[in-house]
Simulated scan of single mutants.
Amino acid sequence: MDAGEEGLPLRNHRLVQPSKTGGLSSVAQQHPLLPPKPLNICRWLSPFFLTCLIYFLLWIPQDQPSWVGALVKCLPVLCLAAFLWAVSSDTVLLLQAALVCSAVGDACLIWPRAFLPGMAAFATAHVLYSWAFGFSPLQPGLLLLVVLAAVLCHSLLQPHLEPDMVLPVAAYELVLSVMLWRGLARGGSAGWGALLFAVSDAVLAWDTFAQPLPHGHLVTMSTYYAAQLLITLSALGSQGPKTD
């Protein structure tokens, strides 16, 4: 199955509700891979929204790194990874692994000395996202637009980088650009999620290396969590079982 065209099948034993007689409803029996009802999706996503609310309410200062701060920052993304246990597909496993890598990156970025390992964790997440999105349709014209935007952003950022950061940042921009290209090519919530992820990283990079931006941290984290949510929801696009 092409993940970019048909979406991903749902795991029926987690999101199908039992009938009053104790068995599965007749609709679920006939169509065991139907998407969950919107109410069920909201219920399964409620831990994500709750932990996001906790993060923004606590708003632990960035100059006070701690394991508590790292946990509070990582919890929303880990909740999305747990949500994906409700779906069944090899591609969904890639999304889960990408979310876990993102959580590792979130934790590393709490400590300035762990910035490079954090960037490596996010780069790994982008590789996994690109793999999950697939490479069909290819859309080389879209790739050209993404490359031009990446070159422009790098040219603006490079004068503010330390010499030992030029290559790591360039490598990260490369994998981010591939992820953005494949997300936009897939379209839907994957495309919007990939775009918001790129916006979040651009704001973070400028805020970190060039000059502080007004409400830069708020913009970075709000677009980041929204991006992860949209990419996660892209796994719920299937309307039927996997076919050869």
Rank of each mutant, 00 (worst) to 15 (best):
D2P: 15
P9R: 03
L10M: 11
L10C: 11
L10P: 04
R11S: 13
N12M: 09
H13Y: 13
H13W: 11
R14H: 12
R14G: 13
P18T: 00
S19D: 15
L24M: 09
L24N: 06
V27M: 11
A28H: 11
L33S: 08
L33H: 14
L34W: 07
P35F: 05
P35K: 09
P36L: 03
K37P: 04
L39T: 06
C42A: 15
P47H: 07
F56C: 10
F56S: 13
L57W: 15
L58C: 12
I60M: 12
D63Q: 11
D63W: 05
A70Y: 14
L71T: 14
C79R: 06
L80E: 08
L80F: 05
A81V: 13
A81H: 11
A81E: 13
A82E: 13
A82Q: 13
W85L: 14
S89N: 14
S89A: 14
T91H: 11
V92E: 07
L94S: 12
A97M: 12
A97Q: 10
A98F: 08
A98G: 15
L99V: 09
S102C: 15
S102P: 10
A103V: 07
V104Y: 11
G105L: 12
C108F: 14
C108I: 07
I110P: 01
F115N: 07
L116Q: 03
P117Q: 04
G118Y: 05
G118N: 08
A121C: 11
T124G: 15
H126W: 07
H126C: 05
L128A: 02
L128V: 03
Y129G: 06
Y129H: 13
W131F: 11
S136I: 04
G141F: 13
V147T: 10
A149Y: 05
L152W: 14
L152N: 07
H154D: 00
H154A: 10
L157Q: 03
L157Y: 04
Q158W: 01
E162P: 00
E162H: 08
D164E: 08
D164M: 00
D164K: 09
M165H: 05
V166S: 02
L167K: 03
A170N: 02
A171S: 05
Y172T: 00
E173Q: 12
L176D: 02
L176H: 07
R182I: 01
L184T: 04
L184H: 05
A185C: 07
A185W: 04
G187I: 02
A190P: 01
A194H: 03
A194D: 03
L196S: 05
A198V: 06
A198P: 07
V199K: 06
S200G: 06
V203K: 10
L204Q: 06
D207C: 04
D207G: 06
D207Q: 06
T208K: 15
F209H: 12
Q211P: 01
Q211W: 09
Q211R: 07
Q211H: 11
P212K: 08
L213H: 04
G216Y: 11
V219P: 02
T220H: 00
S222W: 01
T223Y: 10
Y225A: 01
A226Y: 01
A227F: 04
Q228V: 02
L230K: 00
I231Y: 01
S234R: 00
L236D: 00
L236G: 05
G237F: 00
G237Q: 06
G240A: 00
G240S: 00
P241E: 02
P241Y: 00
